[in-house]
Design a protein around this nucleic acid. Structure first.
Lengths: 413, 413
DNA sequence: CTCTTTTTTTCGAGCCTCGAAAAAAAGAAT
DNA sequence: ATTCTTTTTTTCGAGGCTCGAAAAAAAGAG
């Protein structure tokens, strides 16, 4: 049962509202914040002057944005870039990327490289992450890093501290959060990559991706990030939302997860590849397929009506029926198709729409809109950054300065 | 974006917390409320004395519950039955039931009868509801009815004012809420029956049905009520959660909804009936099957291994794969099987568990626990009552009396 | 009949938000 | 150039709310 509201919670929550309003809007004035939050001008004035004094917000002289109206001009408030910084770590198949992002959301420094995640021993995989973070922290100088977020394909535990399982490595149960916190002394969470994509879309296009939407990652496997009623949906015991492992055909094609008939076993890159080569559905999935190979496959499918086109058709059908089942549960919502598979969405869309129209969930299937974004890595990185920054907003800065005690010396025994 | 907390919201929310704590616990003392809400004793004292003065709560002298400890004995607080009352209306296939329930949750008067919902014209169907409510209100005397809730199979609109579609009647888009409000001048909502079952389970066994669980109604059709993170899950455009219309086998058996391959097309009573008679999967579903017939079918299936047993096996399989897909999305959770179909759960469970074990969502399928409750009507009624009562708690009584102003004369010019 | 223990109420302090009024900072009008 | 308007922002006192500490209440124990 949720707990009552203490008196001091009030300030904390309203501070959080103000910070959130500033992050959401582009440099709003105090008046705009008052309107957005429904709080009075006096309250906004008091809170914002506190936040400025604490170095969290700053007034921007900048634009002078030529006021066409008369009256006292509005003073724009902005997040102070130096107030904090965060580290994002994106770990994908054969790929690692680290960035430092300031409090206003600008990237300070970043690095990325290829590495063989499938063959690397566990300690070396972790070592590569640590080394890259260490290098970037060196470059980022004396910034006050307050949070790190690591995104990875696969499932995490509910506390978002451990990668339970991932297709990018044979190792499971890697406690990234503990390791990184031990090394750098900064709070860390481990997040599902598709959830971060969904988070990023919310910030990129809040008009379209507002309360309810679905991000589907079409890649070697199939992932999903789901936002319901404005909140990122996560499972109760894990990161949840394993759209790729909904059952498309009971006892059907062999999936990478070892079961049969999952959506992914028809729509993942390896499944399309397998079907295009007219291999048996019982054949073990291959480990990795290059983007170039998948593009070539799509080109062949576009050129002539052969097994390649049929493979994409079956992929679209699987996703269509999967979405139909999902929509039966949650009602139709906008969909973003992300990842290399989205580059072949022209092949997938017609059978997908045909399939979804044959389901109860796809009742108004014509009205369901799909957006396409083939490059997932920038989205994942943005999602990590926004997640880390909003954590600082809500959990650290909203709490305010530790009620004077001007010079407290922490003893280290 | 959610709105800031005004100062007067504070009291309202904490009053709601106190009322909710009293409804949840059995006659708690002020001390127990303080512990449950995390608020201070002084605050609880102030709020509860207000609520007593307003006639919402009352101290119970009753039990004297032999205090074994020394010290000032705790004074139990209880909801005052006369503070309000609600009307519940349960509309099911060929069945109508109305009850008046007092603020403490005790049934004051109730009535139920059979009627042919499938053949009744729309206005007569509505007329029967109105007449039964009118009769019960007559019996209930001068109680302050503050809310009505009508539960019905099928989908409602997001505002819960209109029954969009229901299998119990050929008519669609019936605006029950407007009609009832127009007739009785009391706020009304229209709810999905399975959602009310889930609501009731939360109150009946809060240990088991706490944050995440699933209620599945096995009846002529298949319905679901889903609770996630303690909140009843509803779709964004409708009542949502159409588990029965997730796709089990693409292009498979003909469903009552007109599509093919839905879970319901294998696991609904009509589907089991159709399969047991070895009819084609293309055969139009029959309109209704009596409970006695279904029980006889189950008895035959138990007695010998024939098409009847196979029909139940396929039903279990469909539900198992459906749950597997659902669990892929939300992680496994406790399940309650409700309705006449649950009386044959012994036939359904083994193939269900076998199927779910073959899905990624059913990873720890042995640990998934099923409870069985064949009689759904009392659950639906309880759910309606609790939903109506908690609405009064949160939205009406939490707001408090209209700030004294002992004799304010409103001028009408 | 006087302790001890536990629950409940009372009371003053400290915050917080709000509305009204004042101050500030411009453009428009004279 | 100076005086209106207009709009934004700050200031200030009032009113509420919760909290902790202390007091009061209501028992059982000794």
């Amino acid at each position: 049962m949720s707990v009552g509201i203490r008196h001091d919670d009030l300030r904390r929550r309203n501070r959080a509202m103000v910070i959130s309003a500033v992050r959401r809007a582009f440099q709003p004035s105090r008046t705009e914040i008052a309107r957005a939050t429904g709080l009075s001008h006096s309250t906004i004035s008091a809170i914002s002057s506190d936040l400025i004094a604490e170095g969290i917000l700053a007034e921007t002289k900048s634009g002078e944005a030529v006021s066409l109206k008369r009256g006292r001009p509005q003073v724009a408030l902005a997040l102070k870039p130096e107030a904090a910084a965060v580290v994002t770590i994106v770990l994908a198949l054969n790929f690692l990327s680290v960035a430092v992002v300031d409090y206003a959301g600008q990237t300070v420094t970043s690095e990325q490289r290829k590495l063989s995640t499938l063959t690397l021993p566990e300690d070396e995989l972790i070592g590569e992450c640590l080394a890259m973070v260490r290098r970037r922290l060196g470059v980022a100088g004396g910034r006050r890093i307050m949070r790190m977020v690591l995104a990875v394909q696969g499932t995490t535990d509910a506390g978002r501290r451990t990668m339970l399982w991932s297709p990018i490595t044979p190792h499971s149960g890697i406690g990234f959060a503990d390791t990184l916190e031990g090394e750098f002394g900064i709070p860390v969470t481990v997040e599902n990559d598709c959830n971060m994509i969904a988070e990023a879309l919310k910030w990129r296009d809040p008009e379209r991706y507002r309360d309810d939407f679905i991000a589907i990652l079409l890649s070697h496997g199939i992932g999903m990030g789901l936002v319901l009623k404005g909140e990122l949906f996560t499972g109760t015991q894990s990161s949840g939302g394993e759209f790729g492992h909904m059952i498309h055909r009971p006892d059907g094609a062999l999936c990478r997860c070892g079961r049969r008939g999952c959506v992914e076993a028809y729509a993942g890159n390896y499944a399309i590849w397998r079907a295009a080569r007219q291999s048996s559905e019982d054949e073990e999935p291959v480990a990795d397929i290059s983007d170039a190979d998948m593009k070539a496959l799509a080109a062949t499918a576009r050129a002539k009506d052969g097994p390649e086109r049929e493979a994409f058709r079956r992929a679209g059908e699987a996703i269509g029926f999967g979405l139909g089942s999902l929509f039966a549960l949650i009602d139709p919502a906008p969909v973003a198709m992300v990842g290399i598979g989205a580059a072949a969405f022209d092949l997938i869309e017609p059978p997908l729409r045909e399939a979804i129209a044959r389901t109860a969930g796809g009742q108004h299937s014509g009205a369901i809109s799909f957006a396409v974004e083939p490059d997932e890595v920038p989205l994942i990185r943005e999602g990590c950054a926004m997640r880390a920054l909003t954590f600082i907003d809500q959990e650290i800065f909203a709490a305010g300065a530790p009620t004077e005690t001007p010079a407290r010396k922490t003893e280290v025994a």
